[in-house]
Write a protein that binds this DNA or RNA. Structure first.
Lengths: 138, 138
DNA sequence: TTGCGTGCAAAGGTTTTGCATGGCA
DNA sequence: TGCCATGCAAAACCTTTGCACGCAA
């Protein structure tokens, strides 16, 4: 896998810092831009998009598009270890849950054998409501 | 469920015709617009969006947003029967597969019991490559 | 006749692209 | 020094909205 391809720039470092620091949430380009500007390290919008594209390409960051109205969301998922398991994303609080489970691992094989379909765990996300959101507020 | 709320107009009828006739695929607003125009029944873009919104609201049509680049995709899923099972979508040909399978049905319960997460099958789609695309090209 | 549906055009927002400059290696 | 990365601004796109007119009930 390509790790840290390209040059190391301050912008890239700041962007990655923010993403890693918010790995439990998803963020938007707008959010990133505002934050970095407030931090005193403003990064051009085009640069953010270009860097994010590379990170998505390399698999370090995942891109979500809920409805296109609010714009896309991005989330740091690590450097490759997350490809083996599925992810659960809560539609209410935005939390991403990494699901390592034998039961789920067998899912792939089942679908492939019985339905001839090769599921890509890296692309697939289960949407729903997490325990906190389901129990707490209504 | 609200069924066929509002007036019956030629535009609405044509739109629904197209969606139902392509229920095995997803379509874009652009595609719908071009098709209807070619058919001799052009429908304004705004109208298509407005009608689709209603259909999504009523649950007859599902809206997908892959990356926002190509715009959103819509697909007719019927009047409620499709909420019980999962869907597999091929990333190459765009085919949507409706998956009725006991193994998958138990998936929800498993995740709920063991991980406290309530999966919403209506929102969840498995992405991957279908048998045709996997075997055929590349 | 009433009021929703439609079309056109303009607005709003997000994402991409061209080009010259700046900075890493 | 060479080449990628960055910024700015403009462009491209998709989607929404305002307003007047048409059409279903």
């Amino acid at each position: 896998m390509k790790r840290d391809s390209g040059y190391n720039t301050r912008q890239k470092e700041k962007l990655l810092d923010y993403l890693v620091g918010n790995k439990d949430r998803h963020t938007s380009v707008q959010e990133i831009s505002s934050f970095l500007a407030a931090e005193g390290s403003p990064v051009g919008t085009a640069t953010i998009y270009r860097q994010l594209d590379k990170l998505v390409e390399s698999g370090e960051v995942r891109k979500y598009s809920f409805d296109g109205k609010t714009g896309a969301c991005y989330q740091y998922i690590g450097d490759g270890t997350c490809r083996e398991h599925f992810h659960l994303k809560c539609l209410r609080c935005g939390t991403l849950i990494h699901l390592n489970c034998d039961h789920l691992s067998g899912l792939n094989e089942h679908i492939l054998e019985h339905h001839g379909f090769t599921v890509d765990p890296a692309q697939t996300v289960f949407y729903g409501v997490c325990a906190d959101c389901a129990g707490g507020s209504r």
